[in-house]
Write a protein that binds this DNA or RNA. Sequence first.
DNA 1: AAGTTTTCTTGACTCGTTCAAGAGACGGGT
DNA 2: ACCCGTCTCTTGAACGAGTCAAGAAAACTT
Lengths: 142, 142
Amino acid sequence: MPATSDLEQMLRGAELRVTRPRVAVLRAVHRNPHADTDSVIGEVRGEIADVSHQAVYDVLRALTGAGLIRRIQPANSVARYEARVGDNHHHVVCRSCGAIADVDCAVGHAPCLVADDDHGFTIDEAEVIYWGRCTDCAHRDS
Amino acid sequence: MPATSDLEQMLRGAELRVTRPRVAVLRAVHRNPHADTDSVIGEVRGEIADVSHQAVYDVLRALTGAGLIRRIQPANSVARYEARVGDNHHHVVCRSCGAIADVDCAVGHAPCLVADDDHGFTIDEAEVIYWGRCTDCAHRDS
DNA sequence: AAGTTTTCTTGACTCGTTCAAGAGACGGGT
DNA sequence: ACCCGTCTCTTGAACGAGTCAAGAAAACTT
């Protein structure tokens, strides 16, 4: 888990002002992979009791724009955030409970970027979501 | 474009009652790939002037559940529907304007279903979204 | 330390989607 | 051909994640 000074370093490196809410949000996302905004707000309020939800929304947007965190949003889910960026990994999502786990890209380095016919689009990312059921849900419903 | 009788056939085949709203919605989705709910409502109202939006929401859910249409929802987009089902194709989405185009699966038949480490999940579908910019947006922003 | 700009607080608001209750339509059985 | 049980549609209200806007407060610059 990065120390506070590391988090500040990251912010400065991205040319973002260092503020308490930003450090706290960045730490929350590092600690809590795939957390939704509400969880982040909760986590952050453990550190700064009275941050506004708006501040957290703003910070999450700023960090996402700077590439310090990544935003993912599978269908039927609210926005979720993770600090693991820049390695082109993917996700498995449970259809029943919404649980998310990381999946390394099966193909190799920057692989998925190849579409058969791209319709003239300039593609910069391939997002893969594997849909299924997690072990817990598979067992519960037998 | 399937005739009305074909659409009715599809509904019966899926053990769904045949109603005017259902036929109209099914036709609208066939005519209008990647349409959002609002567009579908508009299209359907050209045929049945006073369907409630709720009816359309209900029908879209029923058709999706029956596998007659597919629901997709890229991040930052409302729900969209398409009638092309069962062929494991994917989508390119424009980051600027949200335009969507179909992309055939590059790898082969039921390919993408292979994740490196599935964390115990039982995977039944691999959804791929290619992110980029469409020709129009690429040109406009030069 | 003062000034400039960015960020945070407060509070209202939007909009896609869902909930709930009752009226109406579908279709299997007589 | 009709009736009846069930499913579907109408109406109208509600929900909730996220956004907008204006002013107060904090961060960096010099």
